[in-house]
Design a protein around this nucleic acid. Sequence first.
DNA 1: TGCAAACGATTACATGTGTAATAGATTACA
DNA 2: TGTAATCTATTACACATGTAATCGTTTGCA
Lengths: 128, 128
Amino acid sequence: MSTLPEISDAEWTVMQVLWERSPQTAAEVVDALDGHAAWAPATIKTLLGRLIRKGALTYTEDGNRYCYRPAVDRAACIRRAGRSFLDRVFAGDPMPALEHFVRSEPLSDDQIEALRRLLDERREGGTR
Amino acid sequence: MSTLPEISDAEWTVMQVLWERSPQTAAEVVDALDGHAAWAPATIKTLLGRLIRKGALTYTEDGNRYCYRPAVDRAACIRRAGRSFLDRVFAGDPMPALEHFVRSEPLSDDQIEALRRLLDERREGGTR
DNA sequence: TGCAAACGATTACATGTGTAATAGATTACA
DNA sequence: TGTAATCTATTACACATGTAATCGTTTGCA
C-alpha cells in the first residue's frame, strides 16, 4: 500500500534474514550473517537502523534490546526488484530474461520438469 | 577479460542505446533517449563521461565531437547483472527466479511454446 | 571574419551506500 | 553495588549516483 522503500544491496541481505525468521534481535541477525557477510557487528546495526528509518523494519523493545521484524511484504519487494531488473537489463521484456536464465543457469532435470508444468498451467490459466 | 566496470541504473539506459547501435555522437544518444528518459542533455553528457572514465565506453574523435561506442560486452554485462540479481533477491538460486517471472509476467502462447522448446534443448544438451 | 552554437570538461550538490567507530544508556553479573 | 558488557543512537567518511549548470574551446554559418 504505502510506497515500498528502496532497499539497497547490503540491506537486502539483512532483510532476507528477517523474512526467513522473525522477530530477531540484532545479535541474532549478526549470528545469522556470520560467515555469509564479512561485516562488523556495527555494520549490521547500521543497516538495521537504516531499515527502520526507511520503514522496511519495525521493532518491539525487549528490555534494552530490539526485536526486529519486517514491515514490508517480501513478495512485494521481490516483484519490485524483478521489475526493476527487467527494465534495466531487458527493456522490461520478460521473455529474453527468461531465456537468459534458462540458458545460463544450471537446472536439474526435475527443475526443468517443474518449469514445464508451470508453463502448462500458465497456458490454461487465461491470458493473465 | 579485464574486470567489468560497475554500471549504474542510469548508465545502463545509456549503454543500451549504444549497444543497440554504435558509434553514436552525444547528440544522437540524446535524440535516442528523447521521451524515454526525461533527462537534460547535460545529464546525458555526464553519464557518457562517467562511462568513459569507467572504461565502459570508448570514443573516437570526429572534429570537435566524440563518437562513442561500447567497450564492454553486452552479454557479459547481462550475465553479471543477472547473477547479481539472483544473489540479491533469490539467494543465488535460479529456480525461484524463473518461477517468479513465469508466474508474474505476461507471456504469449508463442512465447510459452518457445520456452518449452528451450527447456527441451536444455534437457538434452548435457548438464552444462 | 566575427559571433553564435555546440562540444566536451569541470564543477556542483544533495542523497544513498558500504563500512565502521564511538558515545551514552542500561543491564547483568560478581 | 559497582563495573564490565551490551544495546541502540550518533557520528564519520569516502565514494557512487542522479541530476544538472557553467566554462572554455572549437566550429560552422552569416
